[in-house]
Amino acid sequence: MTTVPAPRPRRWRVLRAFLRNPAGVVSLSFLILVAALALGAPHLYPDDPMEMVARPFLWPGQNPAFPLGTDSLGRDVAAGLVWGTRVSLLVGFSAMILGVTLGLAIGAVAGYFGGRVDAALVKLIEIFQTPPSFVLLIVLVAIAQPAIPTVIGAIALVTWPTIARIVRSEFRSLREKDFVMAARGLGYGHARIILSEILPNALPPVIVTASVLVATAILMESALSFLGLGDPNLVSWGSMIGGGRELLRTAWYLSAIPGFAIVLTVLALNLLGDALNDALNPRVAAER
């Protein structure tokens, strides 16, 4: 028997649709640049970004060696910015992966099995989704003590319900489809049907939401660091803004610059989400 060649063209079609979207391509390129900065930080700025390197309060452009200026302790703002990308991307992507895994597991089980299991898991989702997520996040981080792993875990704990809801509704509609019935008729086990039959078909909306989740996680991490609930031993964009807060009157650039980094990164992720959505759901995109 020959294999069915259907999936491959579809994948190429999605890629082509994505490449035709200028906003998507630009954001993806920007994100690759940010990732390169994060990876290259130890080579670009080998010294500790927390070290004093020059006279404090150099304004951007005042000294060409420090294009973005220095803060109240004479630390290089550009170095902090580059090292901060590491924290933002690490937290953003790890929290997304953890949250998506949790949401996939719970959403898939609820949607596939239905009945009482579903009812119980839906209640669980509701219980986690009802509290204001940022308040719950602060509580979790305050109790577990601020550090990168606890921040990642806490963000995943407040964001998984979004994924779980999407996955559950996808699984509910897909489990009645003919190909699932056929798989069941062939005597496949539940795990095999969930993982290799339904899951690949349920993924497109999850992929779109995942890119928005990274953006949300980066925003949450920066807000936590701004409030002083980030990892105290690392420079992050949020903590840089928090550090500049008391100096708004004299040196507002200290708060402004890291903020632009956050806005651009999060904007790129949101645009990427939109572009992925258009590429993966061509019918919806055509209606827009």
Binding site: L219, S222, G238, G259, V266, L267, N270, L271
Partner: peptide, 15 residues
């Protein structure tokens, strides 16, 4: 609106 979506609240407050 996309920019409004992407701006951290604490930062826009400071600005």
């Amino acid at each position: 609106t996309l920019i409004f979506y992407s701006v951290p609240g604490f930062w826009i407050g400071l600005m």
